[in-house]
Design a protein around this nucleic acid. Structure first.
Length: 346
DNA sequence: AAACCGTGGTC
DNA sequence: TGACCAAGGTT
């Protein structure tokens, strides 16, 4: 491990660093995001879960709808899973929705919102970053954060080698975060780190001329800003086949609830069968699509079976007017809507 | 440690 | 247009 003496690894003292970030945030940072208005721990929790690996612009309409329907943590705790997943549909990483639901129930049962690092990390969906973010944003108290923005900022400032997820780098980043995070104006400091990463210290074409930390940035001094952080070594993306059934009966469509693990967990889909399933022998293919996930490519075929489908407890019938309010995976929704539009024209 | 988990925006 | 990226967590 490297030195723990801060003065060895960065040119600003911790106090000076925080003052620069805080001052810049006040003048140049973002102040009008929906979750920055009338801040409550619940709003911070919802926004942070939604923002995990998801862009701000994508989250905003989901956040607004969510707060309208579930204004309080008690309202969310009492809701059914169908409605929770329905409001999350299209946002991706659906375990976050289940975690948020469970978090609301746990906090409601607990009687108070947790306000320390350890208690926060016991809550489903809250890891080290989100716990620090809640301390900073909800309570304006000491809460170190390392997310993608902070990782990029620190890797450049200190010319840190390694890529996201490498334990040695992550350890360095968290140690720096703990040392550089002040004990005052913490909300503004944390927001400043994120704003710097999101608006100046960006992945491509960083705006170093506008950066308040330029004079202390090692990557800038080396003229290698865009060489940090090092890219993760990438692997080939495998391709998988999926076979889905199109079964209509009296104007209704057969859908299947997916299990709470795996891809599209807890969502409804067209029933999926194994490629060897006997139904496919007598079925005719009526469509296909290709969908890119982050870690594999799905080549889907949709079949219209000629034989009766064995229904299970996971199956249900849905009229087309119901489809808008149920939780469907984005590519499945797209295909269904296109199919229904075409059959309406017949 | 490394795989798994989604989707849409961007260039 | 494909590859990268985005306020990570869980297993």
């Amino acid at each position: 491990m490297q030195s723990t003496d801060l003065s060895d690894v960065h040119p600003f003292g911790a106090g000076r660093f925080a003052a620069l970030v805080i001052g810049w945030q006040q003048q140049q940072g973002r102040h009008d995001l929906p979750w920055q208005l009338d801040i409550t721990p619940y709003k911070v929790l919802v926004s942070e879960l939604m923002l995990q690996q998801t862009q701000v612009a994508t989250v905003i309409p989901y956040f607004e709808r969510w707060l309208q329907r579930f204004p309080t943590i008690e309202a969310l705790a009492m809701a059914g899973q169908d409605e929770v997943m329905g409001l999350w549909q299209g946002l991706g990483y659906y375990a976050r929705a289940r975690n948020l639901h469970k978090a609301a129930q746990a906090i409601a049962a607990r009687g108070s919102f947790p306000d320390d690092l350890h208690s926060l990390q016991q809550i489903p969906g809250i890891g080290r970053y989100t716990a620090g973010a809640i301390l900073s944003f909800a309570y304006d108290s000491y809460g170190p954060i390392v997310d993608g923005n902070v990782r990029r900022l620190f890797c450049r400032l200190f010319a840190l080698e390694g890529y996201a997820g490498q334990s040695r780098l992550e350890k360095q980043l968290w140690q720096l975060a703990e040392q550089l995070t002040p004990t005052q104006h913490n909300r503004r400091f944390a927001q400043g780190l994120l704003d710097l990463g999101a608006t100046l210290c960006t992945a491509r074409q960083p705006d170093c001329d506008s950066c308040p930390l330029q004079s202390g940035c090692q990557a800038y001094a080396l003229q290698q800003v865009e060489q940090f952080p090092m890219p993760k070594p990438k692997k080939a993306k495998p391709s998988r086949q999926g076979h889905f059934l199109w079964v209509q009966q009296q104007g209704q469509l057969l859908l299947e609830q997916r299990p709470d693990k795996g891809i599209w967990s807890s969502l409804l889909t067209l029933p999926e069968v194994e490629p060897e399933h006997p139904l496919l022998q007598q079925a005719k293919p009526i469509g296909s699509f290709r969908h890119q996930f982050s870690h594999y490519q799905l080549d889907a075929t949709i079949w219209q079976p000629q034989l009766q489908v064995q229904e299970t407890a996971q199956h249900g019938w849905y009229a087309s007017r119901q489809l808008a309010n149920i939780a469907l995976p984005a590519p499945i929704r797209k295909w269904i809507e296109q199919q229904l539009k075409q059959s309406d024209l017949d």
